[in-house]
């Protein structure tokens, strides 16, 4: 028996909105500690990892670990039948569920849906706990804007960290540009820019993955970029009181 109730159903909708362009079919894992999801994008360049802790739910029960294979596209079709202010409950009865039930509750209506599940034998990747040599915390809408603007100039974006801060740069056919974000310790947390640079990095990435993933900015006013030289970068959106949504993106390297 599994039951998880989102107090803020809009949050769940934003999470699905953020990953729907990146991953197609995913295994939703539920166990005593909460819900998790890990899936690579179709080109195996990025890995999406979601972790939601049971304490963040209005109601949470999971007697036995469950794996529920679902199509993100079909999940979205069901979620489109819910309002952003609805409370959303996920539920299954049996141990090997073939469907996942949804209840959408608002003050004037209650809806019930069932999503057919599928069995996906997806390779799970072990993400080692890494000490990143550069960790940058900045406003998520600022990061989104920089990626969108520089992404118009070139499909590869460079990220260089130093004690002074973080610099985004592009060199394209039409020309080049760079944006250096200044560190500021304003007391307003959503505007703060913090850099912990033990070792500077200089990495290149396909900016289209950032632009796809940055829909997750709706989840958090801050984004955390963790980097080490020649390692995948991690973009992390903290989901208040619940957990986090991460994108691991493999770098582009000089051949």
């Amino acid at each position: 028996m599994f039951e998880a109730k989102f107090e803020d159903g809009g949050l769940f909708k934003k999470i699905v909105e953020a990953i729907k362009e990146l991953v197609k079919n995913v295994n939703l894992e539920a166990n005593g500690t909460g819900i998790s999801l890990q899936a690579m994008d179709t080109s195996h360049v990025a890995l999406v990892a979601l972790q939601l802790n049971e304490k963040g739910f209005k109601k949470y029960r999971c007697e036995k670990s469950l794996t529920m294979g679902l199509s993100i596209e079909n999940l979205q079709k069901i979620l489109k039948c819910s309002g952003n202010d609805d409370q959303i409950t996920l539920r299954t009865q049996d141990e090997e569920p073939t469907t996942l039930s949804f209840t959408f509750e608002s003050k004037n209506r209650i809806s019930e849906f069932q999503l057919n599940l599928m069995s996906l034998d997806q390779e799970q990747l072990g993400v080692p706990d890494t000490e990143y040599s550069s960790v940058v915390r900045m406003p998520s809408n600022e990061f989104t804007k920089i990626c969108r603007e520089l992404g118009n100039i070139n499909e590869a974006i460079g990220i260089e960290t130093s004690k002074e801060g973080i610099k985004f740069y592009v060199k394209g056919d039409i020309g080049e540009g760079q944006v250096s974000v200044k560190i500021n310790d304003t007391e307003k947390p959503e505007e703060r820019v913090e850099c912990e640079v033990d070792e500077p990095v200089n990495l290149s990435f396909a900016v289209r993955y950032f632009n796809l993933f940055n829909k997750a900015s709706a989840l958090s006013s801050q984004v955390i970029l963790s980097m080490s030289q020649d390692q995948p970068l991690v973009i992390e959106y903290i989901i208040e009181e619940m957990g986090s949504l991460k994108l691991y993106l493999a770098p582009k390297i000089n051949d």
């Binding site: 360049v45 799970q124 995948p232 390297i253």
Partner: peptide, 14 residues
Amino acid sequence: GLQQTKINKYFSQI
């Protein structure tokens, strides 16, 4: 030029 690497080059399959 820049070669895109794959994520499963860095993370082992479990």
